[in-house]
């Protein structure tokens, strides 16, 4: 199954509405490009790090995120110091780390469904251009559904091939798995259609509020 990067609350950081957190994040991103002083940005990073314990996110995560980025950061810093100046290198590194930490904090303290709700709100104005938030939410659900299924299919196919004494040819694995997955996708689409779901606009997905209930259309 798919895990999440979410850390359970409650905490003051969890309590801030998802939309505001994303706004602050955008603001921070812009500010970090306007401010060209590594010391100021480093101070910002310190504030972000202090928010981790406040949001009940293990401080270990700060380290993990930095470690994952380390090879790239070193590469960037070296080229930068070489072609530009050590100051520019410091600026880049602090900027990237601060933004990554801040974004990581938002992700850790905001639930999947809260993010999804913000997404739907962002998408709502696009309705005019034919974007259907409910359908997008449906496709997202499909992906979450298919990831473990694909893993299962890969294991089964691999076992079947091993039983026949076939080696580890990636093509001999990828092709049958892809075809099986496509067939399953057809089946799923049929099953959804047979129930008459998703034929129009908003009959799927999260925002109950939007779901207009027509009393006249209840069962006979």
């Amino acid at each position: 199954m798919i895990g999440t990067l979410h850390v359970p609350g409650p905490s003051p950081v969890h309590a801030v509405p998802a939309g505001y957190k994303l706004l602050v994040l955008c603001g921070l991103g812009t500010a970090s490009f306007v401010i060209a002083d590594p010391a100021v940005i480093a101070a910002g990073a310190a504030v972000v790090i202090m928010l981790y314990p406040l949001g009940r996110v293990p401080l270990h995560q700060v380290w993990v995120q930095a470690r994952d980025l380390a090879p790239l950061l070193v590469l960037m810093a070296v080229t930068q110091a070489w072609f530009d100046s050590p100051l520019a290198a410091a600026l880049t590194v602090t900027r990237v780390l601060t933004l990554v930490w801040a974004a990581g904090l938002v992700t850790a303290t905001t639930g999947f469904s809260a993010m999804m709700a913000v997404l739907q709100r962002i998408l709502a104005p696009l309705r005019r251009f034919g974007v259907r938030p409910a359908r997008i939410a449906f496709a997202l659900t499909m992906t979450v559904r298919f990831v473990p299924l694909l893993q299962e299919m890969i294991q089964e196919t691999r076992a079947a091939q091993a039983a026949r004494g076939m080696g580890r040819n990636p093509l001999a694995l990828a092709i049958p798995v892809t075809i099986r997955a496509l067939r399953l996708a057809e089946g799923v689409a049929e099953a959804v259609e047979a129930r008459g779901a998703l034929t129009d606009d908003d009959d799927f997905g999260i925002p109950e509020r939007r779901h207009k209930e027509k009393a006249s259309d209840t069962d006979a």
Binding site: L5, V96, L99, V100, L119
Partner: peptide, 23 residues
Amino acid sequence: VLVALGLPLLAGGRGGLGVFAGP
């Protein structure tokens, strides 16, 4: 969108908004 919403789907289990802030 799923990555941005916080699922660790990028190679190496990365995910969340931090990915888009990174290089």
